[in-house]
Amino acid sequence: MLIFTLRRLSLFIFTILLLTLLSFSLSFLFPGDQLINLTGQLNASPEQLAILANDYNQQFGLLSQYFSYLNHLFHGEMGYSMNSQLPIATEVLNRLPATIELTCVALLVAMFFGIPIGFCAAIYHRKLPDNLILTVAMLGYSIPVFWLGILAILVFSIQLGWLPSAGQISLLFEIEPVTGLQLIDILLSDNEYKWQAFQDATRHLILPVIVVALAPATIFMRLARTAMLEVLDTHYIKAAKAKGLTFSQIIYRHAMRNAFIKVIRDVGLQFANLITIAMVTEVIFSWPGIGRWLIESIYQRDYTAIQGGLIVLSTFIFIVHIIIDFVYAALNPLAREPHHGAR
């Protein structure tokens, strides 16, 4: 397990370095002055710019500039937003929790529904339920997410009036941000309308979560179906059948667990996709998250914000990747061992 952890950690550090290199080079690629792109100090006077240039080692070579940039990053300094002139770190901290909340709940929902349905399809392989599930899955990952979001609002918010259409919580409630995660903040707050606020926040969460979760859920269905079919085709299942175990015993005791492990391995890869979907969904549901902020930043040509958003969002994805890798390793002893031979 130690070797496994070290391997993951070194990979993580390497990836983050590459990412910062990418983000650093973006400041050269974006239109305008590189130093201003990096710091976002649009209104700085020439003297202030000179100080900044010194700060970022502009008089030295590129490598030194990069290290100075890294140094600033490690101290949480990502420059200032060109649009609002607030520090990027503050802007990100204000918005990232909302995205974390949305995407993590959506991921769990997608797994919670997708994987069992996929197993179901595999169990009824080439029968009606299987075909039905495959059709639904095909529609699910073909539907453009912005269209789905609009339709969901039309049906559930306007026509049925069940669920709210925008935002994280009704603005009636005043919740002090502590962790930034709305549901936790509500529980921590001493608002007299605490429980109403909690219910309201949950109701706000439902529609966007469903919209974000749909496409990944259909992909999990397919992954789970394939994994289950592969497992059911293995020798140990055949052996179990030969031993006379009932079908449900085989599924529950042997197949499910092994198929589940196979699916978990791919969950991490789907997470980047899920974030893409969440970015568009945030725009449609006015979700105060980092995706909407990034898309608005591009309208404003706020290059500092785009660089900061890239780093933060990608780091978040890597962290989720690694968490899932550890879950996988915890479930599957084989993965913990060092690799032998070719991958």
Binding site: T15, L18, L19, L22, L26, L29, F30, P31, A272, N273, I275, T276, M279, V280, L294, I295, I298, R301, Y303, I306, G309, L310, L313, S314, I317, F318, H321
Partner: peptide
């Protein structure tokens, strides 16, 4: 691997920004 783990839309947005 790094590129693949950046959400495709974000990557496209960055390229459009450039």
């Amino acid at each position: 691997d790094v590129i693949l783990s950046i959400p495709s839309l974000l990557l496209a947005i960055i390229i459009v920004a450039i």
